[in-house]
Amino acid sequence: MNRKTSLTLLLLLGITVMAHTVLPAPGIADDAFPHARPRHVPPSVSPSKAIPTVPLRSPPAHAQGPEHAARAALDGLKPFEGRYALAVVDPSSGRTFTHGASTEAFASASIIKVDILAALLLQKQDRGTSLTEAQEQLASRMIRFSDNDAAQELWVCIGRRQGLDAANARLGLTAAHAGQRGPWGLTQTTVHDQLALLKAVFEDDSPLSTTSRAYLRSLMSDVTAGQDWGVGAAGSPTSVPVLKNGWLPRETTGLWVVNSIGIVEYAGRSMLVVVLTDGQPTREAGIALVERTATAAVHTLVDQV
């Protein structure tokens, strides 16, 4: 084969090779043609080998503030019957904590006796007079022994419901506090009304004079043995209970109303505490509920600060 023939064959072979080679069209990226340019393709991640995600968790109750911790402590108590409402005020800060049926009304039972005496003392202040010896004896029996006959006599002295409503309007309680019909023990109240009463009894900014407040406190700190249960259970072991309790079986249902109000001294702090309950199967069950809730709330609120 001569040289001219060889060149002709080589030219024909080159044209044939080019005819079978596909080139990318103008304007199309190279990666549209995977064989035109080698490229690195990252390996796919199998779902079973994916990086696990960490679920978001709420911070512990104590890290969210004392009020949140107190609610968690109260919600964690054992089941109970009936209903309850609780309120705590820290006088040093003015902060108020409430829980349970705190916007609902309850029968007062014998805690209204503190209100009756506060109304009588306010009336005496207005007149510039003091309690008579007979009234002092009645007041002592009413608060220290929860004597109902003594309470009835002083109820008449203040002008019954009209007198109590007038006093409560000045003490910071709602006007409807004594607006219901029926015996004084069935007068409806709320934890907010009872906090207002406790503030009037134990704080300086009060319509009650220093002498009147000291007198009320002296009686509430000397309740007879057997009646010193209630919110005082939340206090330090060496503290003296300063409180008034109320208990009342309802004739229609046989269930109990059990209430407690007072000032509690715990870990160097003074706290105003109210617990109202009803629908309790027994008086003892109501007392246990009052003491458990008061202790859980006060201790958590103080310890978490």
Results as ranks from 00 to 15, higher is better:
Ser6Glu: 08
Leu11Gln: 11
Ala25Thr: 09
Ala25Ser: 04
Asp31Cys: 02
Ala32Trp: 11
Arg37Asp: 03
Arg39Glu: 05
Ser44Trp: 13
Ser46Gln: 08
Lys49Gly: 01
Ile51Tyr: 09
Thr53Phe: 13
Arg57Ile: 14
Gln64Trp: 02
Ala72Met: 11
Asp75Thr: 15
Leu77Pro: 07
Tyr84Asn: 06
Leu86Met: 09
Asp90Ile: 09
Ser93Ala: 13
Thr96Leu: 07
His99Ile: 08
Ala101Asn: 15
Glu104Arg: 14
Ile111Met: 05
Ala118Phe: 00
Leu120Gln: 12
Leu121Thr: 09
Lys124Met: 02
Lys124Ser: 10
Lys124His: 13
Lys124Tyr: 01
Gly128Cys: 04
Gly128Trp: 10
Gly128Ser: 10
Gln135Val: 03
Arg141Glu: 10
Ala150Met: 05
Leu154His: 12
Leu154Val: 11
Trp155Asp: 05
Cys157Gly: 02
Ala166Ile: 01
Ala166Tyr: 00
Thr174Ala: 01
Ala175Phe: 02
Pro183Val: 13
Leu186Ile: 10
Gln188Val: 11
Thr189Phe: 01
Gln194Ile: 08
Leu197Ile: 00
Asp204Leu: 06
Ser206Glu: 01
Ser206Ile: 05
Tyr215Cys: 04
Leu216Ile: 06
Asp222Gly: 04
Ser236Ala: 12
Ser239His: 08
Val240Phe: 01
Val242Met: 08
Gly246Lys: 06
Gly246Pro: 15
Val257Thr: 07
Tyr266Asp: 03
Met271Gln: 10
Leu276Asp: 00
Pro281Asp: 01
Arg283Leu: 03
Ala285Lys: 07
Ala288Met: 02
Leu289Tyr: 03
Gln304Asn: 10
